[in-house]
Each structure stands twice: as C-alpha cells, then as structure tokens.
Write a protein that binds this DNA or RNA. Structure first.
Length: 431
RNA sequence: UCCCCAGUAGCUCAGUUGGCAGAGCAGAUGGCUGUUAACCAUCGGGUCCGCGGUUCGAGUCCGUGCUGGGGAGCCA
C-alpha cells in the first residue's frame, strides 16, 4: 500500500493508500461524514459512511478536533462532488494527536489576533499561497543572476558601522566594550566582491531600526543585491527591468493557482514586459505638479507621492537622477549635472512603493573620502571601502530589491507583514 | 516621536438619551444518507482592558495608563 501526498492523488485512482496530515475541519450529513485533510501539499476530502465504514473508525472520527494530526487509510475515488475532484473513502484512521481547542476558526479574525498566532496562521491557505509566491520570487531572482554568471557572495550580518548614514541601526554588544551593528545592506561588501568576481549578488536579511509604522515597513526584511564592475547607471536600469520581468514570469508560470486564490489578475502580470517606463526625477515632479501636488525640487518622495506617480503607469516605473542630497554618500553624482545622483528607484504599480533602489557608485577616492566626511561617518570604519578605490578603481553599479515589497505587490497585500513568515515590526517581536 | 481609531464571551462584533449583558461563529448534546466555511434544535460560556472620578445608578460621561490597529516622517 502506497503512502502518498495529496498533490499526487490523481495517480492513485481506485488504489488503497495512506495519507498523513492535519484535520482542517469536519462536516457531516446524516450517515455520511467528511473530514478535510491538509498535508502541506494540498487539501482533500476524506469520506466515511455509516454502515460501510467500521464502527471503530467512526468512533475515532467523532473524537477528532480541528488540527488533530492523523494518518488516514482508504481508497482514492474520483468524484465530482469532492472539492478538487478526488476523495479518499476511509477504511482506517490512526490518530497521532488529538489537538486542543484550536484558536483559529475557519472564520474571520482581527489582525492583532492573527499576528499573535502567526505560527498557526501559516497553516491557512491564504498564507501558504503568499509564502509559496515568496519562494517563487526568490527562486526566479536567484536563477536570473545565476544564469547570467553572477557569483553568490554572502554578506555579513554583523557590521562595524553604518552603510546608510541616515537610517537608524540596531546596535549590539560585541565582546566587551566593542559595538556591532546589524547590517542595513550588503552593498558595500558586494562592491568589494564585484572587484574580485566581476558580477556578484547577495541574498539575506537586513535590519533597520526605523520607528516606521506603515504598511510598507518591517524592521527585518530581505534583499537581493547585485553589484557589477565596469557598469554604469544605464546597465543596472536594464538589469533591474530584466530582473522584474523574470520574477513576474517565474511567478505566473509556477504559482498561477496561488495568484488566483489571492484574487490577482494574471492578465495584468502578463503585460509586465519590457520596456518599462523610465523617467527622471524632474519628470516625476511634473507628474506630481499635474496632479495638483506642490512639491519642492530637492526632496525625496513620500509614500503618498510614490502612489500618485506609480498610478500613472500599468507597469513598474524607473525614476532616475534624484537630487544628490536625498541619496546615500556612496552614490556617484552625474558629471553633467552634479546636483543629481546617478541613481534609480523602481516603483511597483498600485502604490506598493519603492521595490528597487540602486545606482552607480562613487569611484573616485578623493570625492568618496570627502562624501564620507560630509556624511559625518567615521573615516576609520570605511578605510577598507576606500581601498576599493585605491587599488584599481572602476566604474561600478548595483541595486537592492526588497523581497517583501515585491511579494506584497504580486500578492496584492494590504500590508507587507503577510509577505514574510515571521514579520518583525516596531511593536512586534512575537512569535 | 507625532496624529487618528478601537478595546464587551475562545473569535468577530452589536449595545439607542446613563437604567436587567446581547447576536453570529467556535465548544457540548441531539437530529439529518453527498457535505463544500453544510444545515436545524438545545445548552454552557462575561475582571464590559486597568486605575481614578462624576452620578441614586457607568459597558455608555470625564481624566489617566496600557494594549492593538491605521497614518505621518524616514525608507526597501
């Protein structure tokens, strides 16, 4: 007798099999009883009929509670009345554990309650759909870089200092009187990597101690960050566009069922093809002015402004050459227009905000040193970073893609907290 | 850090002008021979977030604290 998983059930029609899983819920009508079994690969209905199923098994059925773990033995039958088209006619149930009162009912719950039970909430179909799409996003992105000859180079989490001077860092003790900080970005290390390997990327968690309470913020989020030697802004804009196309393609190819469960329009994603809209900061400012928003040149866009801009386009939009003062110290200024940086942000459609940020890096040692000084950063901590400009400096560029925001957009989520298995927010560190 | 909203049964919520604490779901029991978050009946279930105040009387009004949610700034 075969032990099978629910996703392969179609291959076992009329065969006797066993399936292990959890009980999502029960229902019955007269002498016929149903239980819905979930095993991580899917859900299916198991059927017991009084008079056909033996008394002992029927007795076990009545004792099962929601989320009890069990192994079911029976015959797979094709039946139009069963959700999914197949059911198992039960001949035996082996109980692993009878679950205590399960807090999450197949009904509505408040966000706070569900977040407190995130470890159990992951069992719901919607959360599984979102996190499977997350997996597909990461897979597609990594395959994209691997296929193009990038080397995966893991960046450290403990860092001696800030990568982005303006944002707040999480600080921790590091043996005695020394301090370490949790990484905000792997970028500086990727720049070192690019000088060794040519094309590199990292994928890992990053931490920002910003006291932000919005639908787009987590204190711990994951980024994939490519960096390329002998590359300029144009190169990375093209790369960012190709990456997004590859991600969308990967997701709609492998996770169509999940997108449908989340109520997403596949046709909308099929339209995400090159070329994307590429506009300058100045042109973005004009869009805001046309929408009746007064906005001074020289400031970075807020969430509301990004939404107005992205709503103008049915595809992700790339915005380049922001005012230099809004960007980090390592960005190279445009030699033809020193007041703007050779940087680019990609805004997701539907107001999901910035999903990619990057640009060309400062490659002149003297200018970079001055920028570090102006940003009020310690010269010592960045000595190694300046070495990259002392020993064979080359033009280079890269960017970072925020995984959670990309997933939130693809899944149509209200808040990024559902796009990561265990979200970390300003006011939430549990479970 | 600031602004707005909420906190009543295990969960989601209602509770009128200040006058006996309510519903649906979940749970228990019973019924129903194909259910799709099944359905029907019955039953059990309360620190009305905490503290203080006003009042003959507070879930309701006032003050304060805590918790949760949404937003701003900042950012991916």
């Amino acid at each position: 007798m075969a032990t099978i998983t629910i996703d392969t059930v179609g291959k076992y029609e009329d065969q006797n099999v066993t399936i292990s899983g959890w009980l999502t819920h029960k229902r019955s009508s007269g002498r016929i009883h149903f239980l819905v079994l979930r095993d991580g690969t899917g859900t299916m209905q198991a059927t017991l009929i009084q008079g056909e199923t033996d008394e002992q098994t029927l007795k076990v059925y009545t004792e099962l509670t929601q989320e009890s773990s069990l192994t079911v033995t029976g015959t797979i039958r094709k039946d139009k009345r069963a959700p999914g088209g197949y059911e198992i006619l039960v001949s035996g149930i082996e109980v692993l554990q009878i679950a205590e009162d399960y807090p999450i009912a197949p009904k509505e719950h408040g966000v706070g309650f569900l977040m407190d039970h995130r470890h159990l909430w992951l069992r719901s179909p919607r959360q599984q759909a979102i996190l499977r799409i997350r997996h597909a996003v990461v897979n597609a992105a990594r395959k994209f870089f691997d296929d193009q000859g990038f080397t995966l180079l893991d960046a450290p989490i403990f860092t001696p200092s800030s990568c982005e001077g303006t944002t707040t860092l999480f600080e921790t003790e590091y043996f005695g009187d020394r301090k370490a900080f949790l990484s905000q970005s792997g970028q500086l290390y990727m720049e070192a990597g690019a000088m060794a390997f040519g094309k590199v990327y990292c994928y890992g968690p990053t931490f920002r101690a910003e006291k932000s309470k919005t639908r787009r913020h987590l204190t711990e989020f994951w980024m994939i960050e490519p960096e390329i030697a002998f590359a300029d802004l144009e190169t990375v804009m093209k790369l960012a566009e190709a990456l997004m196309v590859a991600i969308v393609e990967g997701v709609i190819k492998t996770r169509q069922h999940e997108l449908e469960l989340l109520g997403r329009d596949i046709k909308m994603f099929e339209k995400i093809q090159p070329p994307f809209y590429i506009i300058s900061y100045d042109e973005a400012l004009q869009i805001l002015k046309d929408a009746g928003e007064s906005f001074p040149w020289g400031e970075d866009f807020g969430g509301g402004h990004e939404t107005i801009i992205s709503n103008h386009f049915d595809k992700p939009v790339l915005i380049h050459r922001y005012p230099a003062q809004t960007k980090a110290f390592y960005m190279k200024n445009d030699p033809h227009r020193p007041e703007v940086a050779l940087c680019v942000d990609m805004l997701a459609p539907e107001g999901y905000g910035e999903i990619i940020g990057g640009g060309q890096r400062e490659d002149d040692p003297a200018i970079l040193k001055e920028k570090i000084r102006k940003a009020d950063l310690s010269a010592e901590s960045f000595d190694w970073y300046l070495d990259l400009r002392r020993y064979g400096s080359v033009p280079h560029a890269g960017f970072g893609l925020g995984i959670e925001r990309a997933v939130a957009w693809l899944c149509g989520l209200e808040h990024v907290r559902e796009s990561i298995p265990f979200p970390r927010l300003m006011d939430r560190l549990y479970p």
